[in-house]
Design a protein around this nucleic acid. Structure first.
Lengths: 141, 141
DNA sequence: ATGGACCCTGTACCAGCTACAGGGTCAAGG
DNA sequence: CCTTGACCCTGTAGCTGGTACAGGGTCCAT
């Protein structure tokens, strides 16, 4: 049966080889055994671990959070409340980001709606980017 | 009257001095004149320009986009359609991000709701992070 | 003249990768 | 057996948008 090289590991998880090595450097993946020719030789469990990492990354957790989650997942007898807490906090962060983007979106949409074409010198969008005074108009140079 | 030093410029626009210098390096702000003692000496127009930059950055435009917007604002006789296009594209990008975050948010909320407390070994959240098979559970090591 | 606030340049750092350069290894085909 | 090409190795630099020093110089008030 085929050895689990870094290329195969990467392909099986939709990761790039470089990213796998990066995760190793970052301490998310263990340093694997090496073959005679100094190739990384992974165990099938590493596949699970990497999939876990990808999944949590896809859910927007930072590498630090992923590390914490991996630790938690390792302590099978520990209470799962910490996991829940971390997830909740992450959810709150996401909600914050959504709210920020919505506000921004509305402002931008309002600006765009105000553009009636014409020359730059009378463009409402650019005006809105400029300071609120009635002076000379947008920045020089 | 007081010379417009970098500190004053920064303070007047809610920017840090370091960021102002960074914008200069990045080509967003012109290289200002220098005093005898090699201090940057700004013109009042630079204030406008920096405010423009801050405003567009707050609206989520990248530095590249800001540079483009500054160029457009400089060509006062040009058609403002390009500005509109850039803004529209930016809006679409924001909408995309919002959609992504919403999807992510729902998934995460679902996961959190599934957590009934207890030990890590039976935690639904961690399970959901793991590969979809019924095997040994979360990553080792 | 001295202290403190300000300014200067240059460099390194953050996340989370990505993209080389310059080599070594391995397996298949001729 | 040798070559070719795909893969792998390490190490380093780059990206975005700043932030944070270190180690110096300047300015101004007291």
């Amino acid at each position: 049966m085929k050895p689990l090289t870094i290329g195969r590991l990467a392909a099986a998880t939709g990761t790039s080889v470089e990213t796998v090595r990066y995760y190793e450097r970052a301490g998310l993946l263990p340093q694997p055994a090496r073959t005679e020719g100094n190739y990384r030789a992974y165990h099938p469990e590493d596949l699970d671990r990497l999939r876990f990492i990808r999944r949590t990354r896809d859910l927007g957790f930072s590498l630090d959070e992923v590390r914490a989650l991996l630790d938690m997942a390792g302590n099978r007898d520990q209470d799962c409340g910490t996991v829940d807490t971390l997830a909740q906090r992450h959810l709150a962060g996401i909600d914050g980001k959504i709210a920020d983007l919505m506000a921004l979106r509305h402002e931008l949409a309002r600006l765009i709606a105000s553009c009636g074409g014409g020359k730059v010198s009378e463009c409402r969008i650019l005006e809105a980017f400029s300071p609120g005074d009635g002076r000379a108009g947008p920045p020089d140079r």
